[in-house]
Design a protein around this nucleic acid. Sequence first.
DNA 1: TTGAAAGCGCTAACAC
DNA 2: GTGTTAGCGCTTTCAA
Lengths: 326, 326
Amino acid sequence: MKVSIRKIAELAGVSKTTVSFVLNNRGDEKNISSATQEKILAIVKDHNYKPNQLARSLSLGKTNTIGFVVPDISDPFYGKIAKHIDSCAEERFFKVMIANSHEDKNKESELINNLISRQIDGIILASTQVFESNKYKGVPLVYFDRISPNQKDSFIDINNQYSTEQITKLLIKRGHSKIGFISLTSYLPNIQDRITGYKNALIDSGFVTDENNIIDIDYNNKKESVVKALKTLLCTNNCTGIVFVNNVLAAEGVWALNTYFSELIEKVEFACFDNLDLFDYSLPKVTSVVQPIEDIAKNCLEMLCDQIDNSIIHKGKVLKTTIIER
Amino acid sequence: MKVSIRKIAELAGVSKTTVSFVLNNRGDEKNISSATQEKILAIVKDHNYKPNQLARSLSLGKTNTIGFVVPDISDPFYGKIAKHIDSCAEERFFKVMIANSHEDKNKESELINNLISRQIDGIILASTQVFESNKYKGVPLVYFDRISPNQKDSFIDINNQYSTEQITKLLIKRGHSKIGFISLTSYLPNIQDRITGYKNALIDSGFVTDENNIIDIDYNNKKESVVKALKTLLCTNNCTGIVFVNNVLAAEGVWALNTYFSELIEKVEFACFDNLDLFDYSLPKVTSVVQPIEDIAKNCLEMLCDQIDNSIIHKGKVLKTTIIER
DNA sequence: TTGAAAGCGCTAACAC
DNA sequence: GTGTTAGCGCTTTCAA
């Protein structure tokens, strides 16, 4: 039923070769008469013929497709990165295949192997398994967001530690001397770096760090867990500034403060990693770190293309965040 | 460099056929000795051999891949649908290729043609061009979210009109007699249906509809535009209830009210289409319509698979929303 | 200017 | 039980 290049060739009374040349814009280069070219193109259009990319890729050994593997595509952060990767890829005539690991290490391997067996040209990966070295030797690969502490392969990172240090210092500058940190039970290096940044800010400013002021949240039970943490930090430990390890927890914090500790709203200030529009019109004030999403996407793709096209393997690059002070 | 099935066959001292059968779990069926099977599998593992899916698909005429085309993958709504589609697809051994049309009609066609030329087995589409009939005859296709009013192909929809009618009536029940509608300049049928729902609610309750109470927002200038609309509706037209055509505009409304009309917060109530977590802890109260995201995803995939596997083309299905009253 | 033919890696009907 | 071979649809070298 479906038309193939052979059929087009037959109809045009030429060989497959000729059709192939014309279709790949090499007609002139190959000195194919414009009459023949036009005839072929007309027939192609007439039959709405679309070359089979599978066959083409098989023959060329190139799919012009890259894989984009993330823990959760419904997370707006990854969604936005995906969107920009897609835009950048388009300019370079690449298609993007997005794969969702659902934060599952085994699923991630499976997905990557699948992408590889589909002959994708490269991979951009936010990995769930940051402590394993690259198991996929031979495939161009760029890591982002979840970077192993001693990453040996290409990556695009941001300075988690420094940024968190900055927002903590902003709270200090505003007069807060007791500052708590609401964190996650997580092995992820970016989370660990944020904790370090918080601590460094305190130490740098001549305060002592107190482990009682750092509370891990049970992510499966965020809401209650944040309320409890705030109660400890604000009521028992007398903190007036709170740094949250991410925006989701900070949003919970805003809710908890309004719901259970509204008498403290004027006294307390928040800071957190990653912004949310909601912070524009919420009390208490939430100062936040903004990741350069577009830049991250752009750099990932550039680095990957350098590997694919020129076999140049850059080491890694750390991008700058910005801070919205509120 | 890369190992192929031929190489495996050579190493095992058998033919490609035998290897192929073993790899596709048809070894027993084909009565291949377990000794041979084990030997082959060992070599495969040893060389970390992964069959080239391109060649496989070319040969089989099936890619086990479906395309998922949306206007904006960074929109959490589409992100969540994508995630669930992906989960459902996995159970059926399908991979999903996500494509972003960036709300561009031409780009959308291009993407779909590309997917087709990559021989994907079917497409799930939220289209930017709802008024054109299916141009992609022959390819299994299911529409969602953006449905043409006289859609002839498979689709999964929700009842935009009825849901909006319900939330409007909730505001009426709470004692609001003057209710405004903040909408979008959009040709999209789902938007038009929401407007109709709002009007029906008023008429049903014995009120007259007043076109002055329906204001279109300039989406490129949301913030200011919403402030202006609220000013007209609340201050000039004396509305106390406002229905927003979607959650993004409602969020802007919450911000605007808090920022410019805070004296009205106690008197005014909002309702909108699509929920946001923020509405849990914002004032004024925002009653919202929740789309059954998981169900939408599940139904899209089931319908598509029925087309792919059994050539059964269901017409369309309208799913039920729920309402969060606040 | 154009075409024949080999090859990309895999499947499967058919033969032995 | 296993192998031969044609074929999936395209690219590209080499020959004419």
